[in-house]
């Protein structure tokens, strides 16, 4: 029967797993854990970082994830890098001299974001809609506008995203794949979309989360680590699912 486990309960939880004869070869990480590990403004950064470093690494537990996770991770960094780059570009100290209309467009979206940061405690990252609005203003200036936008994207995204992708290698994450010979031992059954749909349909959890829980069900891995209430509620609502580990505060807010 699956349960939601607090980080602070991990030592006892692990001891019980081992005592029951469960092999703890690895765990599946949710994308929000990976993003939180290296982005300090994220809530629970320190707790999550220390938990992975002092507990998971120390116990020699390998990290697994689904392919969706990399997409979510890179997409977060796409938005973060563009936000930081564009905001720096319009700062009075910037050596870049963008056309006034473009600066105004960036400033307008930045003010909306600033309002969200101040009043809702939002993280300083443009959402996709804001990026689309800024891009539209550049593309409205024809070929020259498009070339300028492409130049900014190359400057702020290309190399940094390549570095972010390579940084992931340091986490030594293994992508779960039924077709990988090296992983044959940990798979107990085939991953199917039908079962992911069933998990999603339980409480309306997001598909990325449903896929993590589904992958977990198909392996010998005993638990996943997440910061997302979707996983916690899914596990609470369906006793057939496996366990999910979360920071204490997230669990306290849910239970």
């Amino acid at each position: 029967m699956g349960k939601v486990v607090r980080f602070s309960e991990f030592d006892q939880y692990l001891a019980e797993l081992k005592a029951s004869g469960t092999k703890v070869e690895g765990t599946i990480l949710d994308a929000n854990v990976i993003i939180t590990l290296n982005y300090e403004p994220k809530r629970f950064h320190t707790r999550t970082f220390e938990f992975i470093k002092n507990k998971i690494e120390k116990e020699g537990i390998s990290l697994f994830t689904t392919v969706n996770t990399t997409q979510e991770y890179l997409d977060f960094y796409r938005r973060l890098l563009l936000t930081e780059g564009l905001r720096t570009a319009i700062h009075p100290s910037s050596k870049l001299d963008l056309p006034n209309k473009k600066k105004t467009a960036i400033r307008a979206q930045s003010s909306i974001l600033q309002h969200r940061e101040t009043h809702n405690g939002a993280e300083p990252v443009f959402n996709d809609r804001e990026i689309k609005k800024i891009r539209e203003v550049f593309f409205n200036s024809g070929t020259a506008g498009m070339r300028l936008w492409k130049g900014l994207c190359e400057l702020y995204l290309k190399k940094p995203l390549e570095i972010e992708f390579l940084a992931l290698e340091k986490l030594k994450i293994t992508y779960l794949s039924m077709y990988n010979e090296d992983q044959k031992e940990i798979f107990t059954k085939k991953i199917t979309w039908e079962e992911a749909i069933e998990i999603c349909s339980d409480i309306g959890a997001g598909f990325s989360d449903s896929m993590i829980l589904n992958a977990l069900q198909c392996t010998t891995l005993p638990f996943a680590i997440s910061l997302d209430s979707d996983l916690a509620y899914s596990v609470m609502a369906n006793t057939n699912l496996k366990d999910v580990l979360m920071p204490d505060e997230v669990v306290d807010n849910i239970l």
Partner: peptide, 30 residues
């Protein structure tokens, strides 16, 4: 068995957000 190095991960990732603009970059964009 592969064991992560979360400190190295953070260190490498921080590099991505701290790349200085070169004079060529500035000239090209301007």
């Amino acid at each position: 068995k592969k064991i992560s190095d979360v400190e190295a991960f953070k260190r490498e990732s921080d590099k991505a957000r701290n790349i200085p603009l070169s004079q060529e970059d500035i000239k090209r964009i301007n």
